[in-house]
């Protein structure tokens, strides 16, 4: 689905979202009112300039439109991998972006993410994955690494990895595994404006992804381990 088509379906009442390079920036009109749209499109990689532009967009919403919900759209194959981006400190730019999203949350903005294409590592972490809850359209391609590349890095035969990923959702890329581990809350199907309205109507909750992963059987230890560290007495002397 193209970004234009996606925006038409999300905001049948209209939207003013402009494209700046690979970024989507603007406002859409949802049933309950205006929603800020901040997105990455076309599977683009995000480098220092993109990260800084996205952070500026988040800060502008916080400053100029207190309380306005934010919808982040993600179709990005990750961070730009270049020497220049590393020399300039891309991790710092993306860390700043994540902090800006946290500021928006703390300032009362509802933050949703919708993965409409690829969602991979460096660019997904500070934008989409920082949302209160994360959704995806059918066909979304989430992942860390394709299995052949993983076979190369881990020295585990590809056939073995393929067999294992049928049982265990932590290995293979795809939407289904990310649903099972609780990393994606739901799949939005047509009509998308209704899905958006419904998500906006729900209150923001603390990070519940580990609990969701346990409930769905795809990630059994994370919630229990975090809870034990959070709540148990420290080991005695």
């Amino acid at each position: 689905m193209t970004a234009a088509e996606l925006l038409r379906r999300l905001f049948p009442a209209g939207c003013e979202v402009r494209r700046e390079g690979d970024l989507l920036l603007g406002t859409g009109t949802a049933a309950a009112g205006p929603v800020a749209v901040i997105g990455i499109d076309g599977g683009a990689e995000v480098g220092v300039e993109g990260a800084l532009r996205l952070a500026r967009a988040v800060l502008e919403v916080v400053r100029e439109h207190p309380g306005r919900p934010i919808l982040t759209l993600v179709d990005s194959r990750g961070q730009r991998m270049s020497k220049r981006d590393e020399v300039l400190g891309l991790n710092g730019y993306l860390g700043h972006l994540a902090a800006c999203v946290e500021l928006a949350r703390r300032s009362g903005h509802r933050i949703l993410a919708l993965v409409h294409g690829e969602a991979v590592s460096g660019s997904y972490l500070p934008l989409g994955m920082m949302a209160d809850d994360i959704h995806a359209v059918e066909g979304a391609r989430l992942g860390v690494m394709a299995l052949p590349a993983m076979a190369q890095v881990t020295k585990i035969p590809l056939a073995r990895l393929e067999a294992l990923s049928r049982e265990n959702p932590v290995l293979a890329p795809g939407l289904e595994p990310f649903l099972r581990i609780g990393a994606v809350a739901s799949v939005w199907r047509a009509p998308l404006d209704a899905a958006l309205a419904e998500a906006l109507a729900r209150p923001a909750l603390p990070d519940g992804r580990a609990a969701l992963g346990r409930e769905r059987g795809g990630r059994l230890r994370a919630e229990l381990v975090a809870r034990r560290v959070r709540d148990e007495d420290a080991d005695g002397p």
Partner: peptide, 20 residues
């Protein structure tokens, strides 16, 4: 990488917890 999806998800949860 051996826990790819659970690994990136874990990093994301750490990131959110740091900022919280």
């Amino acid at each position: 990488l051996q826990e790819a999806n659970a690994g990136i998800e874990a990093v994301s949860e750490v990131m959110r917890a740091v900022l919280s």
